[in-house]
Design a protein around this nucleic acid. Sequence first.
DNA 1: GGAGACAAATTGGTCTGACCACGATGCCGC
DNA 2: GCGGCATCGTGGTCAGACCAATTTGTCTCC
Lengths: 236, 236
Amino acid sequence: MAEESTPRTTVTQRAIEQIKAKLASGDLLPGQRLPTERDLAAELGLSRSSMREAIRALTVLGVLEARHGAGVYVTQLEPSDLLETFGAVAEISRGETLVHLVQVRKILEPAAASTAAARITEEGLARLRAEMRAMERGTTAEEIVGHDMEFHRIITEAAGNPVLSAILGGLNNRTFRARVWRGYEEEHVFARTFREHEAIYRALTERDPEAARTAAAIHIGAVEGWARARAEEDES
Amino acid sequence: MAEESTPRTTVTQRAIEQIKAKLASGDLLPGQRLPTERDLAAELGLSRSSMREAIRALTVLGVLEARHGAGVYVTQLEPSDLLETFGAVAEISRGETLVHLVQVRKILEPAAASTAAARITEEGLARLRAEMRAMERGTTAEEIVGHDMEFHRIITEAAGNPVLSAILGGLNNRTFRARVWRGYEEEHVFARTFREHEAIYRALTERDPEAARTAAAIHIGAVEGWARARAEEDES
DNA sequence: GGAGACAAATTGGTCTGACCACGATGCCGC
DNA sequence: GCGGCATCGTGGTCAGACCAATTTGTCTCC
């Protein structure tokens, strides 16, 4: 027993695991610089090509960061770094999965709004007001959607949980929204969004967690409907 | 204008984007086979090494699957494939982030339990009973934790949202649990878990969504406390 | 004629070594 | 003392070779 090599997998995969282990164990700390690709390859006993594949993989996962000419570094390992890939999922998903993604958002966003009601600062509320005004004044759909996203981002942020923020950020991708909200330019749909944002804002102002939760749930509920319609289109 | 090349990024990164675009647009469909690495490299105008890095990155993201000797394939793009990386995050995270992860679970799991109360089948309930019995009979911590995880997995599954299942699955990682539950072997802690599972199970049997939600929230609330204690240890 | 075994072609996995491009360092001249 | 330039270190890319797993086709034997 005690196989020292892992024949059933690739050397690259093994390298990935080894680096991940060093991270989990605290052997590598956030911000720290790794040895050079060449040294690392020698250390782990593989070629530079394979080592590079491993580093690239961990880079897209948001764990490492390669700076051309400067070296490879561990990221801050903030949830925002690590869960960036969550957005990629939202971008690629199609059909029914779109609905499932929105459903998860429908669970998380009300919870975030509820927590935010108790924690949001006066400054946060002021920023929400600003976004609402900007959204109403907005002319292009692009612009309006931008302020809409920012509105939700501020609330999420106020909940004070970076993991939650990162997940909701991914689910709230620009690309994702664009796909769900196709044909969103209709005037009355925007009007409805305004009203719903207003309701959420009011609940936050009154520091009413339950009202905030409900208002957010209603808001996302509307999105869910569109996602469902869109999903049926996809199933062609 | 209209720069045709993207000088500000790497060729590998560009290749990743191009393949992702093909996936999002439906140009590449789940299960489909891609051209060989060599052909793909020629097609996108880069070397095979760089192409391989791109493929490896997408493999780690759960989007592609490379079969030695057989070719590269698009996965089924099921949430379970794509959100596998979520587990990796949970494995690497330390300190306060552990608490934030558990907090997200505390939001999602009650929601899942609530939905499950309305949807779980008789067979599902039977499996829950079996897991509870097995857990009580379990001798090693390893074994008990395994049945515990399965208990939650069955409930999550019954909620019928694969995205939700995938996220909770990642949050419920074996490694993750091991880190949070250090010193979990104490008898009374297990006893408490038994009782809490019992409460969740009863609510499901009675098809009572609110009771299920509450019972699940209480259960995860206990875990949150341990995670918090564990996080303070980490901050050394 | 069909089934199994073997051989060849296909294709991902790994390695080597070279060169380029970007950053950091330090030296030199003003 | 300071700005600019040369050098070196390091990641980024490329090319070509060989290995290993799989697939496919063919051939033999029953």
